[in-house]
Nucleic acid binder design. Structure first.
Lengths: 151, 151
DNA sequence: CTACCTGCAAACTCTTTGCAAGCAG
DNA sequence: CTGCTTGCAAAGAGTTTGCAGGTAG
């Protein structure tokens, strides 16, 4: 096992993928932020430690991680995709989003999470059964206008 | 008032916009389907009755309708945006979405709508207050794999 | 050593912008 | 008439693909 594969290597190999420096770096970046990074964002951060990395690889790696369920992809309507480490992978706790449709600001909230998750889980079961869907995850967000953008 | 403005003209003019044939057509298309149309979809349908329409106009009109709150924009992760008439504008009743991440199929469900809306409304109020957000709407969807794509 | 992985460049797709002509009010 | 609206062509932005060289296992 390569030295840079300490943290995520096992999981990658378990799914039949090789552990490489770029994959480890991308996962590490996602794990050490609370932001909602775009591929370009991730590319720019990674570039500091690993100047050879290509944007293409970031896209390909994110695609793979989403398929493995290790990362979740979001779209907040500003024309670029955003990625977050799944809650069971790293430090993050479950949260939902509040989006300002004017400035694009994204707030995470987790105030009502217990209550929401209770209902979501119940619905997930019933819908899965009725529509024969194997449900993986959900997206729940509120859209509005933030304080600064109101004035 | 022009003859083609019977249905939506009033609302458009009320917001300071002119009523034109293309706007009426686009609204009519959205009102007469249960699908989740992309700008291209709308353009192709409109083109049959009104061959001169341009794709650009479809984009501009949809933008405007979203800003007025008459139409809601969605992103189901397949690289194109989707539009639906808002529930208070036409025939549709409130529903949420169930998306197959493999084939892109979109199912509308409204089984638990009452229960969901109760909770959503409550959360909307509390979050709006706490984070000083003027919340307009919400997006709630489940992602999974449908029956056909499982096998 | 072999199959997977990577970076580069180019291609692609969806969306937006500039502008002159057209039409609603 | 006047300024909003439209269609066309072209530009822009984000994402994907082809391919030859590189590297994990």
């Amino acid at each position: 096992m390569r030295k840079y594969c300490e943290r995520w290597g096992h999981k990658l190999r378990h799914h039949g993928y090789k552990c490489t420096a770029t994959r480890e770096i991308i996962l590490e970046i996602l794990n050490s932020t609370d932001d909602h990074l775009s591929p370009e964002d991730i590319y720019m951060v990674a570039h500091k430690n690993y100047p050879n990395i290509g944007l293409t690889t970031v896209y390909r790696t994110l695609d793979m991680l989403v398929k493995l369920g290790m990362v979740q992809k979001f779209d907040f309507g500003d024309g670029r995709s955003r990625y977050e480490l799944s809650e069971d992978q790293g430090h993050k706790k479950h949260h939902h989003h509040l989006i300002c449709i004017k400035c694009g600001k994204i707030l995470d909230y987790s105030e009502f999470i217990e209550e929401e998750l209770g209902l979501l889980k119940k619905i997930e079961e019933k819908l899965g059964e009725k529509y024969k869907f194997k449900i993986n995850d959900h997206i729940m967000q509120f859209n509005g206008v933030c304080d600064q953008c109101t004035s």
